[in-house]
Design a protein around this nucleic acid. Structure first.
Lengths: 342, 342
DNA sequence: TTAAAAAAGTGATATTAATCATTTTTTTTG
DNA sequence: CAAAAAAAATGATTAATATCACTTTTTTAA
C-alpha cells in the first residue's frame, strides 16, 4: 500500500484531499503545517508528498528545500497544490525542484492522475538485466568518457593497497587480476578480455585495491575516471543494475572456483582452467583453440605449481586432448577437455 | 558537457533556443519534428530533452510516449515547451510523465532555470557509502516490508536451481550458504549472522540460485519479497549503493578464501576459519569465544575432510590454543590462533 | 646466427592430507 | 537412566601433488 503525505493548513482541503486518497487506496498521513510535514516525511518516508505553499510555521518552499537536503527524502515525488496560480509562482515551484504543480481548485481526477503519473515515473519498469545488444548502447556513453591507454606485456596496471581512481574497460588483449601469498605464490581469480570492465569491485565499496592487475599480452584499455563512473551509477539506474549483475556473476564464479579448489583434482582443475581460458581468448564457435599463455600464469589460475601444470599438459598431450607447438597450447577439443572426469 | 535535445518545428524558436543553450555551454542537438527527435534521442541519449507539442509527423505527446517506452531514454528529463497554455493541456502533458511544462513565450532565464533544476534533480548528490549509523535507518524501511519466519536447526532455506523469491535478513542465529560437489562434499562459502542480508546475489543478476542455504542453529529470518527489494533498489539510490558495497565485499572475501584454499596448509586454514567463525558467533571485544559448530560444518567451511578437522583441533588443544568441553570448542586466544604460521 | 637467458619439462623424493576402518565420546530418545 | 544413534576422534594406509634438482627447449638479444 502506497503512503501519501498531505501538508496543508486549511482543515477543509486537507481532510477532503485525504479522504479522496484514502478511498483510492493510499495510506494517508496529514500535517497542518510545514514543520509537522517535514517531521512526518522523515518518519514515514511516504511514496508521494502533496504540499501547499502558503502555510504558517514553514511554507511549502521551505518544506521542499528541507526534504531535498535530506538524502532519505530527496527522492520522494513532491507535488505542490496551491492557490498561487501566477506564472511566476508556478515557475518558482518547479525551479525549486517540485515534480508537479497543481493549482487550486482541482478535481479528484486531476489530483489522482497527478499522483499516479509521478508514482509511475518513479518506479520505472526498467529492465534490470540488459541483453547483450542493449548493453552495447547502455555502456557506449560510459565508455565515451574513458581515455585510451596502451600497455605492453606483463605490465602492472594496479597493485594492492593502491587507491582506485579508474574504472577499466578492456578494448584489446587480456588482463589478469591476482593476489599474492606471503611466500610469493600467485593466485589469479579472474581473467578479463575485450569487452570486460574491471576494477569496479574496489570502486563499489570505496576501499583500496585488495588485488593486483597486470596485462598478459599487449593490451588497450579505456580508463574511466572514478568520478564519472560514480556519477553514472547514481544517475543511471540501468548502469548500476548492470554492475550489480556483474558483481553477482563474479561472486557466483568465485563460488565455483572455491568448490573446485577445495575438492577437485589438479587434473580436473587444469582442464577446466584451459576451457575457461579458451573461452576468453578464442573464437566462441569453434571447438578448437590455440592459447599462448605461460605455465606460470596458468599455474596461478589453477592454484598449483607450474611443474604440476607442465605434467598435466604432458598427460593431456599423450591423450591427444591438446597439441603443443612451441610454447603455444593447441586444444584439439574443448568439449572433450570439459568432460574430463575427476 | 551536458547534451540537450530540442524538438521543435518552428525554425525560429528552434534556432533561438539552441543558441541560448549553446551559449550556456550545452552541446545542442535539434530536430524539426517528433520522428527525427526520437531518433536523435536514442542515438545521443541527451541529458535533457525540450519538446514542442504541436508538430508534424509525430507530436510531442507521441515523442514522450515513445521515449518512455524505451528503457534507454525513459529516464531523461523531458520538458514540454508549448503555446498550449490551457490548464487541461498542461495537465495532460504532466500526466503523461513530463518533468516540466513551459508555456510560450518564455524568456532565457525561465528556460535555463527549468533545465538546470531538472538536471540537478536527476543528479542528486546522494552519498554512496552509508555509515554504520545511517545503515540502520536506511534498511529499517526495507526490513519493515519483511515477514518474520523461524527455522529450526539444520533446516534448508533454499537449494540450487530454486527460483529466488525473497531477500533474507538474519534476525537471530546463523545461516550458511554452500555448494555441493558431485560426490556430495560440501563447501560453505559464507556464514551469515544477525544483521546480515543474504540471497541478494541471485536476485541481483536474475538467475536461479547457484548455491544452497541452510540454518546452523535456531534461526529467525525476515523474508522480504523480491518485488519489494527490486522496487527499493530502483528507487533508493542509497540502498542499491549499499548492496553493491555488500556484493563487492563478498567478492573480496571470496578472493581471500581462494588464495587460502590454493596455497595455505590445512592447519592454517582451520585456524583462520575458527577465527572467522568466532567473529560471527561471538562477542567482538573478547579474545575468547566458545563455538558450538559441528565438525562437518567446520570441514565444509575449511574445504577439507571432517577427520582432518578433528586432527587439527586435537593439535590445537595440545598446544593450548583451544579447549574442548563436550563438542563445544572454546578458543583460549583468538589472537594466537590468528597468528599461526603456515 | 649464436650465445645467453628464460621458460618449460622431467625424475626422484618428501610431505600433506584424504580415505577407510575402528574406537571413543556425545547426544538423543524411549 | 539406559540403550541406540549420531558425532567425533584416532590409527593405519594410500594417493596426490609439492618441492628440489636437473635437463631440455624456447625465446631473447647481442
Amino acid at each position: 500500500m502506497k503512503k501519501a503525505l498531505i501538508i496543508e493548513d486549511s482543515d477543509d482541503i486537507r481532510e477532503s484531499t485525504a479522504e479522496i486518497l484514502d478511498l483510492a487506496g493510499y495510506a494517508t498521513f496529514t500535517a497542518k503545517n510545514g514543520k509537522i510535514g517535514v517531521d512526518l516525511a522523515i518518519k514515514h518516508t511516504p511514496d508521494i508528498i502533496l504540499c501547499d505553499i502558503m502555510m504558517p510555521e514553514l511554507d511549502g518552499y521551505g518544506v521542499l528545500y528541507l526534504l531535498q537536503k535530506n538524502p532519505q527524502t530527496a527522492g520522494i515525488p513532491f507535488i505542490f497544490m496551491t492557490a498561487k496560480a501566477e506564472r511566476s509562482d508556478m515557475r518558482k515551484g518547479m525551479e525549486m525542484g517540485a515534480d508537479d504543480y497543481l493549482t487550486k481548485p482541482f478535481d479528484d481526477v486531476e489530483l489522482f492522475n497527478a499522483i499516479e503519473s509521478r508514482l509511475k515515473k518513479r518506479h520505472k519498469p526498467v529492465g534490470f538485466k540488459a541483453t547483450a545488444g542493449d548493453k552495447e548502447t547502455l555502456f557506449a556513453e560510459l565508455k565515451a568518457k574513458g581515455k585510451p591507454r596502451s600497455f605492453g606485456q606483463k605490465q602492472i596496471i594496479y597493485v594492492e593497497h593502491d587507491q582506485p581512481s579508474y574504472l577499466y574497460y578492456v578494448v584489446k588483449g587480456q588482463v589478469k587480476t591476482y593476489k599474492r601469498a606471503k611466500d610469493g605464490r600467485e593466485l589469479s581469480s579472474t581473467l578479463y578480455h575485450a569487452g570486460d570492465f574491471f576494477g569496479y569491485q574496489s570502486l563499489c565499496n570505496g576501499t583500496s585495491y585488495t588485488d593486483n592487475a597486470a596485462t598478459l599480452a599487449d593490451v588497450e584499455l579505456l580508463l574511466i575516471a572514478k568520478a564519472d563512473f560514480m556519477d553514472y551509477l547514481q544517475s543511471h539506474q540501468e548502469i548500476s543494475g548492470a554492475f550489480m549483475s556483474m558483481l553477482s556473476n563474479n561472486a557466483q564464479h568465485k563460488d565455483e572456483q572455491l568448490l573446485r579448489l577445495a575438492y577437485f583434482s589438479v587434473r580436473k582443475r587444469v582442464a577446466e582452467t584451459l576451457v575457461e581460458v579458451a573461452h576468453k581468448f578464442g573464437d566462441k564457435q569453434s571447438d578448437e583453440c590455440t592459447l599462448r599463455i605461460s605455465r606460470d600464469d596458468l599455474a596461478a589460475l589453477v592454484g598449483t605449481a607450474s611443474e604440476t601444470v607442465s605434467r598435466m599438459l604432458a598427460d593431456f598431450k599423450d591423450e591427444k586432448l591438446i597439441e603443443k607447438n612451441g610454447n603455444a597450447i593447441h586444444i584439439v577439443s574443448i568439449e572433450k577437455l570439459r568432460n574430463i572426469k575427476q
